[in-house]
Design a protein around this nucleic acid. Structure first.
Lengths: 198, 198
DNA sequence: ACCTGAACACCGTTCAAGT
DNA sequence: ACCTGAACACCGTTCAAGT
């Protein structure tokens, strides 16, 4: 631990890190098991430098994933401004699905690099914030049942990471998301019926 | 392809295959990335023999998974005899969740070995048969909406494979499964409200 | 027909030497 | 303080030689 917590990286070091991330995104999106040595070489850095920045495959993949998913997360506030809560939630899920399909190689890399699907290892940060925002807006509007946690939600839509992006993914994703939406609605203030707790 | 389709294996060959599967189940349940060479050695066979039976890691893991999941699948008819359809479905999901937690190492191995979560690469066979049985029983009884495919169902519960088996998995699994059940119920003949298709 | 185990290839990880 | 790239370790895969 030679690097103090807040201290900025040296100029060239920062540049190296950025190049690694840039190359890694491209390579991993293309193929989930692109060798780290290839990424290092294409980024123009030595193996050692690569390792200084990312001590293992998981840390690299998580960092990229985190950065990429931020962009989807950022769409949430905007959607809530322009749509009623339930529609915003559903539209956001669609975006996430689209993202999951576009970056399927990356999602695959994440699955392989991490123990358990820690797609939710991102327990804090923008993704969680976005989900929380969407859920509370809907809960307040009475469009979903109260008490659904972001964790519940992410588990419920976990299936989207499992859909094959080749072939006809769109209807499969839509059916899954519809089903989840119905599950979320069940027991909402307006709706009768709903959650069984025997 | 020296082995004709229906031709039985030679006695020692069959024994080797069985021993590999037995050892692999134990090793992979313990650690998802147990080296194949270790499995071969513990099973008392050479590398070549291992390869003759399982040309790659995926084929080994899939075979074990298929065999293991059969036992859960087999519980479905029994549950339908002793419970009303909706309860049987829910009870079966609970068993699947328990299985997923007990064999988490294996599930992890499967995730890592396959492209996309082909937990559903088992598109035919006992698992699908069991799910179909449960879904049609419920559909006939009017306890779930019509038109839910086994594929839809497995995607909806995909989250259970993502739950960390250490720590407090039970409430998380229960909340997920409750939500899925509610989603399945929505739009059933008896129930008002339900699926939005805009 | 099936088996063994040494040999090979590949990739992640480390480290001595440089600036 | 950071970098390079050769060296090492490990594991999947193949194959010549054996029964």
């Amino acid at each position: 631990m030679q690097q103090r917590k807040g201290a900025p990286l040296r100029y060239d070091a920062q540049r190296n890190r950025d190049r690694i991330l840039e190359v890694a995104l491209a390579e991993l999106t293309l193929s989930a098991d692109a060798p780290l040595s290839v990424i290092a070489k294409k980024a123009g850095v030595g193996q050692g430098t690569f390792y200084r920045n990312f001590p293992n495959r998981e840390s690299l993949v998580l960092e990229i994933y985190r950065h990429e998913v931020e962009q989807v997360a950022d769409a949430a506030p905007q959607l809530l401004k322009t749509h009623p809560p339930a529609e915003a939630l559903r539209a956001w899920m669609d975006r996430l699905a689209q993202y999951a399909m576009a970056k399927a190689g990356l999602a695959d890399a994440l699955r392989k690099a991490t123990t358990h699907g820690s797609l939710m290892g991102l327990s804090h940060g923008p993704l969680m914030a976005a989900v929380t925002l969407l859920l509370t807006a809907n809960e307040d509007a009475g469009t979903i049942r109260p008490g659904v946690t972001p964790d519940d939600f992410l588990l419920a839509i976990a299936g989207i990471w499992q859909i094959d992006p080749h072939g006809d993914w769109h209807p499969r994703a839509a059916r899954l998301l519809d089903l989840v939406m119905d599950g979320l609605r069940a027991g909402a203030p307006g709706t009768p019926g709903g959650a069984s707790t025997d």
